[in-house]
Design a protein around this nucleic acid. Structure first.
Length: 494
RNA sequence: GGGUCGCUAGCUCAACUGGUAGAGCAGCGGACUCUUAAUCCGCUGGUUCGGGGUUCGAGUCCCCGGCGACUCACCA
């Protein structure tokens, strides 16, 4: 069946050359894109086009044809635009009107004509001449129901983009969001930099890396899990305000909030602290929100998220303790190993992760508090134990924050640890964790410590998960729907 | 990795406890100069995800495999 449909389309395509001179033209000179025609002229009244003859030459993909005898209505589309075109026998001439039968829905065509508004007031192009530019050999999915098969939408994203306009709009929105972020950073005189993705030591975060090999140098390398340590080297080098928006790779599970490669923005500013960055984050999100929605309030699922500053601030250890007290656990009970283990079992927490009193409290927070943080909320008061790159606040906690929105961790920032001796000790204790079996513990990075030896100014640093932020700003509950090409298992071909 | 669900025409979906695989859209032929899910008349279209089994008979039941969604575990 499909072969028949393709065969019909192929035979029409064969006839293009004799009818239009070319089977696959090299280029088509357009005077305006579809979206610029629409934005420039759609507000003009019908009469305007009767008094002014506006000729345009544009091109796009044919997505519908409604033939009514000697008049045919069609729509052509491009990424951000769609316009109706009219093929009229009187204007085109009998010959070229008949040749419309060589076109199929999905073909890409160039049209030359003048603008008008139809009886219903729709801006349209009355086509004087047209030229087929590229053949769509395979029938497109049906226009009304669109392409519903989620798997096919991911595997053949181009079809999803052609057919499902809400999907296309979602990606455009993500692109606008990233543009807004760049604008925000550039307005503040940050320099955008690029740092290595291939790294001999994958540092800067707690995660399992992908490993690879360089043949000529005969060395093993890792795909980066974070740009952090390189960006701070740049701050040592005098680049006082830097940011990078790029991919990180983590060799971990896949679910609706995790893709093995994901986009992160990290930024660092010398002579600043985490308090400055919490404030800056509030301003940034409010700016993005206004750029995209024209408002500081946006819809998300059944909620409204407000980016009005100040965001709520809560203390991780306090919140975790409150939860425990509410559940009838006695203050400090978790500090005894045996009792803590009982609590871990009682609350069904991960034994691996909740292996010390502090890590236990983090687990309690992650399990019982974090998922309920719908409105933007800064969490502070992280334990030293789980923060090997942050400046100390006291013996147990560090100067670190995370931002939660819609139950998701969106950002992580801190006042950077710039004491090289302390940093070396922290790496040593990470190495101990690693030897005890923690696959995500950080590796000792002496080259980074060497940079610190030369003096890192007091610096604030932060990372923002761009994909998750895009989920928030596009009202989407799966990360795959904001990734153009999410990772999927290849289909077996036999 | 565990559990649940899904995979039928190019697309969207039907098909009772196992009994001739069907509709709409798309396509093909025809009518039609303001349609927009155009309409009207006629026609075509299937390796039911793959492999095996049970049965007189399997889209349907059983087993193995593939891919996906959700979920748990793991994980920023």
């Amino acid at each position: 069946m499909e072969e028949d449909l393709i065969e019909i389309r192929r035979s029409k395509w064969e006839k293009w050359k004799e009818s239009f001179g070319e089977k696959l033209p090299e280029k088509y000179e357009i005077t305006k894109s579809i979206s610029s025609i629409v934005s420039e002229f759609s507000f003009q009244p019908k009469e305007y086009f009767e008094e002014n003859r506006i000729e345009v030459k544009t091109a796009g993909r044919l997505i519908s044809m409604r033939k009514m005898g000697k008049l045919t209505f069609s729509h052509i589309i491009e990424a951000e635009g769609k316009i109706q075109i009219l093929f009229e026998k009187n204007i085109l001439g009998e010959d070229f009107y008949e040749k419309l039968s060589l076109l199929d829905i999905g073909d890409i065509i160039g049209v030359n004509g003048y603008l008008l508004k139809t009886r219903t007031g729709e801006l349209s192009i009355a086509v004087q001449s047209y030229k087929p530019l590229s053949k769509c050999l395979i029938p497109l999915p049906e226009k009304w129901h669109g392409l519903a098969d989620i798997e096919q939408r991911y595997r053949q994203r181009y079809l999803d983009l052609i057919i499902n306009s809400e999907s296309k709009e979602r990606f455009v929105k993500r692109i606008k969001m990233v543009e807004a972020i760049r604008k925000f950073m550039t307005n503040r005189n940050y320099l955008e930099v690029e740092t290595p993705m291939l790294q001999p030591i994958a540092g800067g975060a707690a995660a399992k890396p992908f490993s690879t090999h360089h043949n000529a140098l005969n060395i093993d390398l890792f795909l980066r899990i974070a740009p952090e340590l390189y960006l701070k080297r740049l701050v040592v080098g005098g680049f006082n305000k830097v940011f990078e928006i790029n991919r990180n790779f983590r060799n971990e599970g896949v679910d609706s909030k995790h893709n093995p490669e994901f986009t992160m923005m990290e930024f660092y500013e010398a002579f600043s602290s985490m308090d400055d960055f919490m404030k800056m984050t509030e301003e940034m999100l409010s700016f993005i929100s206004k750029e995209i929605y024209g408002s500081e309030e946006i819809p998300f699922m059944n909620e409204t998220i407000s980016f009005k500053a100040p965001f709520k601030r809560i203390d991780l250890l306090e919140e975790a303790k409150n939860v425990l007290l509410e559940k009838g656990v006695k203050e400090g009970e978790w500090e005894e190993q045996d009792k803590m283990r009982q609590l871990v079992a009682r609350f069904d927490l991960s034994k691996e992760k909740a292996r010390t009193p502090m890590r236990f409290l983090v687990e309690v927070f992650d399990t019982f508090v974090a998922p309920n943080l719908m409105q933007p909320t800064f969490v502070v008061g992280f334990p030293l134990e789980v923060s090997p790159l942050s400046r100390k606040k006291d013996d147990l906690t560090v100067r670190r924050f995370e931002l939660y929105i819609a139950g998701m961790e969106i950002a992580n920032g801190f006042s950077e640890l710039n004491d090289p001796d302390d940093q070396r000790e922290r790496f040593i204790s990470q190495a101990k964790e690693k030897s005890k079996g923690d696959a995500e513990a950080m590796s000792y990075d002496e080259d980074y410590c060497l940079a610190l030896d030369y003096g890192l100014p007091p610096t604030a640093g932060e990372g923002i998960g761009i994909d998750r932020l895009a989920m928030i700003f596009t009202n989407t509950d799966s990360i795959r729907d904001v990734l153009l090409f999410p990772l999927l298992k290849p289909q077996k071909t036999e």
